[in-house]
Amino acid sequence: MFLVALSFAYFAKALSGSYMKSTITQLERRFDIPSYLIGVIDGSFEIGNLLVIAFVSYFGAKLHRPKIIAVGCVLMSIGTFIIALPHFIIGRGNISGTINVFPSFPPGCEGESNLSMWIYVLLGNVLRGIGETPVQPLGISYIDDFTSEENAALYVGCVQTISVVGPVFGYLLGSLCAKIYVDIGFVNMETITITPADARWVGAWWLGYLIAGVITLLSAIPFWFLPRSLPMSGHQGAAPCPPEQTTEKYLSLMYFIPTLRTLLGNPVYLIYLCVTIIQLNSLIGMVTYKPKYIEQHFRQSASKANFLMGVINIPAVALGMFSGGLLMKRLKLNIMGAARFAFGTSVIGYVLSLFFFAMSCDNAKVAGVTLSYHK
């Protein structure tokens, strides 16, 4: 039951994360903000995660892990709902891309109100990052503590596989919502004269966040009813400390620093840390801005770009995970060998990603932007 619940939580967080990236161009048009600011908003998830990850991983492992994961899922859900909140504050949009603010706003405040709406998106994404923090470290440690060594790898593999499926549904949800006009339910759709292929079109970006928020909230429910510990038949690991010993021994910063020092002195951990940095450095930028690149340079709608991201890129990641596991099994790599293998393949992937700098397309010819009106 814990494995099913954790897999669902992984699916939910992966779905909402990929949906966030699929709405980048929609948010730019809706709030009239530049691309660099979208990068800040997208990175705010990792900022929220970074604020609490060390403390949650260390102290949370000594407490009731399923309930802490449940709290994290609830926070992720609230953060996702906050991201959608500006749609219900700023009113309806018009075809030119500007916002018709509700009359309650004083004259002259419309632009300021519209400008500040992206802050809600940023704060919601930060809260998503904070809520996501306990899911992976506490979930994986719970599996590792209460399963045999040979089964732990299988269970973790199942969870990781589900986490790859989440982005597929996230991008497909983004594709679906991008086909729906932003003010669906508030305007007569027969009066809308533009199509999703029009550069002025803004899809129902907020709708997907409501769906993702509900799914994330549902993922928290099972964890409230799971026990703090499970029977450990044949498990070689050390039994968890009783609650009273936990409070006395671990809930103090004096044990945190020495543990962190020991961890940073582990060569396998350092290699894995480098691998993660290299992978994210080469992946995040591509995943974040590739849909926008497809839209602008190949003149595709946001819906088409998100669909392509979901059905082409994500299965490639799944294939890489499967082939990597197959090679590790065939080569019979130990822990250090696996770390070196991961580091080598990550460096190769990073070098190959640099070839994107050599690829380019001509800018779209737009009168008054890239061409004069006299040509």
Rank of each mutant, 00 (worst) to 15 (best):
I83Q: 08
A84E: 02
L85Q: 01
P86A: 08
H87G: 04
H87C: 02
I90M: 08
I90P: 01
R92W: 00
R92S: 10
G93F: 02
G93E: 01
G93Q: 03
G93L: 03
N94E: 14
I95M: 10
S96F: 06
T98W: 01
T98C: 08
T98G: 11
I99G: 00
N100I: 13
V101F: 04
F102C: 07
P103M: 00
S104T: 12
S104W: 14
F105Q: 02
F105V: 14
F105S: 13
P107F: 04
C109E: 14
C109M: 14
C109H: 12
C109F: 11
E110K: 05
S113N: 09
S116A: 10
M117K: 03
M117I: 03
M117Y: 02
W118S: 12
Y120T: 06
V121H: 05
V121T: 11
V121R: 05
L122Y: 09
L122M: 14
L123W: 07
G124K: 07
N125L: 05
V126E: 00
L127N: 03
L127C: 08
R128P: 00
I130H: 04
G131L: 06
G131H: 02
E132H: 12
E132N: 14
T133R: 02
V135G: 00
Q136I: 12
L138N: 09
S141F: 01
D144L: 07
D144I: 07
D144K: 02
D145L: 12
T147C: 05
T147E: 08
T147R: 09
S148C: 07
E150S: 13
N151P: 08
A152N: 11
A152T: 15
A153V: 13
A153N: 04
L154W: 07
L154Y: 08
L154D: 09
Y155H: 13
Y155T: 04
Y155C: 07
V156H: 04
V156F: 05
